[in-house]
């Protein structure tokens, strides 16, 4: 009788141990699986810090605009035009006057006066105004240009342009930072 008891007791212990072991195993497997999930869902991220070039703000009372531009540009305002000069080229901002009262009509007249191919023509809003950015390719030796036209109101258009691809990113940044200051 005592032996039975002892066996029973041993058996219980073994079961207990077995349960414990299983629990441990289960826990371990849980941990390792979550680790492996982590490995999948959270790959090691390498952070690199790209220094953001400093931006300056330019405002013109005469031309009634403000924009931000990279600090390496030198700015010159000449009558109806602002020239941003950098080592590798120029970005120009023209204040245009037109008889047209919307962007589409303006572009229609603009295109009619030139022999060129408009390779890109996308519409957007800049500072709440109808705008278009385009790429003009000319049949003569004028280099192709990327131009933003921002139509303010009846008769007023601003053109931001660059003829060197290396300036296109800066052009985007500058044109899209435009604010009209009447």
């Amino acid at each position: 009788m005592a032996k039975k008891k002892s066996i029973k007791k041993n058996f219980q212990i073994h079961i207990l141990i077995g349960i414990l072991a299983l629990s441990v195993l289960w826990l371990v497997s849980l941990m390792s699986s979550s680790q492996s999930i982590d490995n999948i869902s959270k790959p090691e991220i390498q952070k690199t810090i790209t220094p953001t070039p400093a931006l300056k703000t330019y405002h013109s009372d005469f031309l009634k605009l403000t924009f931000k531009y990279p600090a390496e540009y030198e700015v010159e305002e000449r009558f109806n035009t602002i020239i941003l000069d950098a080592e590798f080229g120029q970005i120009k901002i023209d204040k245009l006057t037109t008889n047209q009262n919307n962007l589409n009509e303006f572009l229609k007249v603009f295109d009619s006066r030139r022999t060129m191919e408009v390779q890109i023509d996308q519409r957007l809003l800049i500072d709440g105004h109808d705008a278009a950015f385009r790429t003009h390719v000319f049949s003569n030796t004028i280099p192709s240009r990327k131009v933003y036209f921002i139509f303010i109101s009846e008769g007023r258009v601003y053109a931001f342009s660059a003829d060197d691809k290396i300036l296109y990113n800066d052009l985007d940044q500058i044109a899209r930072s435009f604010q009209y200051d009447p």
Binding site: F79, T81, T97, T98, M116, F138, S139, I142
Partner: peptide, 29 residues
């Protein structure tokens, strides 16, 4: 062609218009 050189000395493809021999002024501005 396709560009003008205005009195400010700037050659520009965005201003109107090539071969023009005078000035145009309009209503809005």
């Amino acid at each position: 062609s396709n560009q003008i050189t205005a009195f400010d000395g700037l050659s520009d493809a965005e201003r109107d218009y090539s071969r023009h021999d005078g000035y145009d002024w309009g209503a809005y501005k």
